Amino acid sequence: MSSRCILCDRSFDSDESLQQHKRESPAHTFDCRTCDRYYSSKTALQQHLRDSPIHVPSFDCETCDRSFSNEQALQQHLRNSPIHASSFDCDDCDRSFDSEEALQQHLRDSPAHAPSFDCEDCDRSFDSEEALQQHLRDSPAHAPSFDCETCDRFFANEEALEQHLRDSRIHQQDAETPLDAFFRTFLMFDYNPLLPPATSYANLQRQEGWRGGSAASDNAWNRYQDALQSELQMWYGAENDLTAWHALCRAIGIEPLPRTCEQCQEAARRTHVNIIDLIEWGRSGSEEKVQTFRDVAELRAYTKETRKIFRNMFDQEGGNVVLRHLLRKIFRGSL
């Protein structure tokens, strides 16, 4: 198979011969690949590289799309053209300055660049950091807040808040409640505090085999009702306790929470709700409101069906005063 040299238009009997030819032939020694031309000597090639316009150095300014004859002319252009002048701009003010010093002077002196000492909460500005800090220390708006979000109550200091959290029964959900204590007096009963009280009592009644009207049944029922009464007092307190009233309002879905006990009382009077359901709500810590009813007849039917019966105690001294406003409407007749 022959190998051909395209440049010389000669053929060789092998590739090795062709390569030998390219190494030794002067025609292949001095070539300008850019121009695809060949020279017989190095001098001729160098002359071509110096004289050909194709190989003249390029002195272009790409920004301006201009070309210059030499490096000096290009550098002169870059120094003198306004387009290439250093920019001393204040972006905030949309102003330009003729030197770095002028720009820095502007940044120091312009009110627009003065440090800002603002209180965002109060929407007020101060002339110094010291004045702002003084405001933050002294303004009542920035006084530490000692709030109990659960009860929607405010306290004067942290000690008072901590005392409330320790003493309020609403914050003692992990402690044994009156209902827990009642059911645990039956040592053989497998008590589950997560079950509704009415369900636990029905399970206890089946286990003990109590019959209606028996002494054991009546005694257990009275103790169960006493425990319910105590549990009710634990979760909903007394009438002059706004915290307890708010707990009741949250349970029955009154929003927004009334600001006074009297307003809570008025709102509760218009509500029909099962008292045992209220106790279950307090025990469970549920976010959902307790089921309410359109009228006393609907509530009475629900109470009989579920056997969620709460003994009417409001005529007796020591009864829960807050819930009287519900009981008075609900229990006008005997269940």
Rank of each mutant, 00 (worst) to 15 (best):
A220H: 07
H48D: 00
H272N: 10
S96V: 05
T260Y: 09
F186D: 12
L136F: 15
S86I: 05
V290Q: 13
S2V: 04
I83W: 02
N192W: 07
Q205R: 12
N70W: 14
K329G: 15
P193Q: 04
L103Y: 07
F59T: 01
A220R: 06
R307Q: 13
D127K: 13
L335N: 10
S25L: 01
A85R: 10
A215P: 06
A131G: 01
L228M: 12
A156R: 15
D94E: 07
T34Y: 08
G237C: 13
R294I: 10
T150R: 07
E287F: 03
D92S: 06
T150D: 07
N240G: 01
Q172L: 12
A202V: 07
R124I: 09
C264S: 09
F126W: 14
C93W: 01
L204C: 06
G282M: 12
D218K: 15
A247H: 14
G209E: 02
A251P: 15
I330P: 03
L18H: 04
Q291S: 00
K308W: 03
L45H: 04
Y201K: 14
M234E: 11
C5P: 08
R95Q: 13
A160G: 02
W235K: 03
S2C: 05
L49W: 00
D295G: 08
N80G: 05
S69M: 12
C61Y: 07
A247K: 09
S168T: 09
Y39V: 02
R124A: 12
R37M: 00
